[in-house]
Design a protein around this nucleic acid. Sequence first.
DNA 1: TGATTGCAGATTGTCTACAATAAAAGCGTG
DNA 2: CACGCTTTTATTGTAGACAATCTGCAATCA
Lengths: 233, 233
Amino acid sequence: MAAQSIRRETMGAQLVAMLRSAILSGEFAPGEPVTETALALRFGVSRGPMREAMRHLIDQGLLVTVPYTGTRVLDLSTADINDIYSMRICLEIFAFEQAWDRRDAAFRDEMAERHRKLLEAIDARDDVRAIDAELDLHGLAYEWCGNKLLLSSWDAVRGRLQLYWAAHHRAHGITGPLRESHDDYIRLACGDSLEAMKNEIHSHMRRGLDKTKAFVESLDEQRRQTSPNGRTK
Amino acid sequence: MAAQSIRRETMGAQLVAMLRSAILSGEFAPGEPVTETALALRFGVSRGPMREAMRHLIDQGLLVTVPYTGTRVLDLSTADINDIYSMRICLEIFAFEQAWDRRDAAFRDEMAERHRKLLEAIDARDDVRAIDAELDLHGLAYEWCGNKLLLSSWDAVRGRLQLYWAAHHRAHGITGPLRESHDDYIRLACGDSLEAMKNEIHSHMRRGLDKTKAFVESLDEQRRQTSPNGRTK
DNA sequence: TGATTGCAGATTGTCTACAATAAAAGCGTG
DNA sequence: CACGCTTTTATTGTAGACAATCTGCAATCA
């Protein structure tokens, strides 16, 4: 019944999706100020719904705002990366613990399917899609245990992660996930040893952390050289 | 409560606090519909800021909304309780792992201070304050590790927990935490064995889960008898 | 009798205009 | 040239009116 719904969604909800993808696609860079009027103009709506969508992303942590002063895209910081990745380890291990006994054929099929989509995006050299596919792949465990609270926490982490990876991609070009980087992950996630899977999560995250951290540090270095003040427009 | 003493904060931000405490104090019961106009009138503001505050609580999960139809306070459900408590175990153990080596004299002092406030509220038979104090006590570990992501996840859990406990309190009168219920928790949290603390968290949560679950089940029973129509979705 | 359709009320969604606030720019003065 | 004050401007905050949509009920018709 919902197949051919034309305007089933409210405007604000659509704006959230559009604005998020605009940020993650790099149209608005991390740290860059965004104003309600400008965005409203950009998306062809009034300030009301636009503001509402922005508040939603503020709640999610993708935007930060100072009352009566301004709003800007979340800036990249080395400190936050440790938080993000340690949180990932905690949540993903928990997700697998909860989902472990619920895994069935459908789970393994879905896992394979998402892996296929990831490989497809990598082969197509489509990094934006590859990033999304990798996060979808990791998201399966969270979805499978059916804990809404856990899922919303993962969403918060995912948003930030995507922001960092997208920035990384734009700075260094092709830097998406390697083709074989998830082979072990998939194998163990569908295997019989929860302990082995936990270890894989740890080492998987460790690799991701090192990579992401190195990038942001190089960015900090670069920024320090060009303008000691901060951002230039 | 002091309506508008100082206006350092923006109106919407104050409304969030007021509305939340109104919900948690039971002025608006779980499952009860709330309308923007009624609330705006109640707090003496326009629909704009009121709506904004409501959207914030919607993002936090304390309110649920259906487009063009209505908004209501989150309803109590037995299924969610398992999610909440398993999430609590996961997050709180992680918080102590992260904070463990950072604990110092200030940490132990603050822990003692919050425990003191909890006992004070219990002795004063002030259950609402006791609930808040207990959550503050548990919150210390989260605050201490300085992970913003973790803290926001804890906030989400805390809000729901508070909703359940407050409902419990209103239904059964004095049901707040017992005076000695946190002695072990405090002792081990300031002690030398992380493993012992993890065990304590597990058993502490187990007790809380059983108690809360029994309450909601009794509530479901009661609701099933009085009104068969039941507005469950 | 049963289903369908039209109507009324309520509620949220959106728009426009105006006020409050904070940061930046201008400017005179020592 | 630096300093402090005033003015300006950009931005968000708030208000009220209007439009779109949903729900329930009653009138209508086979």
